[in-house]
């Protein structure tokens, strides 16, 4: 399953990049992420809770940064399991940053494999959940950047 989208942040590309790579700070902007810990400079462990209506998923897993081309491109791999739902998500996350006149456009592609029980829950739901999370992430990042600028 491929999920694509974009959002724009009002900040120069370099600032956005730095914020993105500040993983612990950045991860606070992903709805549902908790208990993030650093394994090494390239990999992190954390938990992600997602709720769609009555269905709750609690994934635990790792994020590994595979490719970094500052300040333009970032590729990460996410592998996370949800024991209770006997499910797993394996995803490659690619993000491309582009300078705009008044900010930075962040496009992302998530190439995700949902495996196990949750897989039959539906593509439409997964797509829209991911998009909502991205939108929330975008506005949260903007807030952080704005706060960072004033601070």
């Amino acid at each position: 399953m491929k999920i694509e989208g974009s959002f724009t942040l009002e900040a120069p590309i370099r600032t956005v990049w730095d914020y993105l790579l500040n993983i612990e700070e950045m991860s606070q902007c992903i709805p549902g992420v908790s208990a993030l810990e650093t394994i090494d400079t390239k990999s992190y462990r954390g938990e992600l809770q997602i709720k769609v209506g009555p269905i709750k998923a609690a994934f635990g897993g790792t994020v590994t940064l595979l490719e970094l081309e500052p300040p333009h491109r970032l590729v990460a791999e996410i592998v996370a399991d949800d024991r209770r739902n006997a499910s797993q998500v394996k995803a490659t996350f690619t993000s491309i940053l582009k300078s705009l006149a008044d900010g930075t456009e962040v496009t992302y592609t998530i190439d995700a494999n949902v495996r196990g029980r949750l897989a039959q829950f539906g593509q439409a739901v997964a797509q829209s959940t991911a998009k909502k999370m991205a939108a929330a992430f975008g506005s949260c990042m903007q807030e952080k950047i704005d706060a960072g600028e004033t601070a």
């Binding site: 399953m1 394996k90 494999n113 949902v114 495996r115 897989a119 039959q120 539906g122």
Partner: peptide, 8 residues
């Protein structure tokens, strides 16, 4: 999808 059957 990726080897996973999504409509079983």
């Amino acid at each position: 999808d990726g080897g996973q059957i999504t409509n079983p």
